[in-house]
């Protein structure tokens, strides 16, 4: 037996959307204004305990460190690069020389892992050049992949003077 259910409610219940939309727009504006566009940054790790920076550490050091000398011109620009006393044309050349010295082998016991680079920079040299030199010795980018070279980098003690 069919029975008709009679309801006094209307077919469509209309919810008042206004408060929700208000809150949602508040949220949007909050996230929009707190959005900070940051350029991606990365680090070069350097471990330099005091007292061991001047001379080569003896403990696990079978390989002599590569000495990279960066000379500055009067305005702080790069005047010359030298590796182990031999002049180097540019940072690409420096990288090639480093690769030829440590070889292609990579891994925990490879020559590249054991070798250390000591940076000897003039006081007035612009810091961007140092980062370029560190970039040259610490790795290359091949097909979007980073191939690591030397990870141990240290500085000689700062020279007094201007």
């Amino acid at each position: 037996m069919a029975r008709r259910i009679e309801s006094s409610l209307p077919d469509k219940i209309s919810i008042d959307m206004t408060p929700m939309i208000d809150v949602v727009f508040q949220l949007i504006s909050f996230f929009m204004f707190s959005l900070k566009v940051v350029a991606p940054e990365g680090d070069f790790d350097i471990r330099m305990p005091l007292g061991k920076s001047a001379s080569a550490t003896v403990d696990d050091q079978q390989v002599p460190p590569i000495r990279v000398k960066l000379s500055a011109g009067p305005d702080g620009s790069l005047a010359g690069i030298a590796m182990n006393g031999n002049p180097v044309a540019d940072f690409n050349d420096l990288q090639k020389k480093v690769v030829s010295l440590v070889g292609k082998g990579r891994g925990p016991d490879s020559l590249a892992d054991k070798t250390e680079v000591e940076m000897d920079c003039d006081y007035g040299l612009k810091y961007a050049n140092v980062v370029r030199a560190i970039t040259a010795v610490s790795g290359t980018v091949q097909d979007g992949q980073i191939v690591e070279l030397i990870k141990k980098i240290k500085f000689t003690p700062p020279k007094a003077g201007k």
């Binding site: 500055a72 810091y127 020279k159």
Partner: peptide
Amino acid sequence: GRAKTGEVQEIIK
């Protein structure tokens, strides 16, 4: 990048 390397080294020191 334009700062002097010596100053960076002094900070490290």
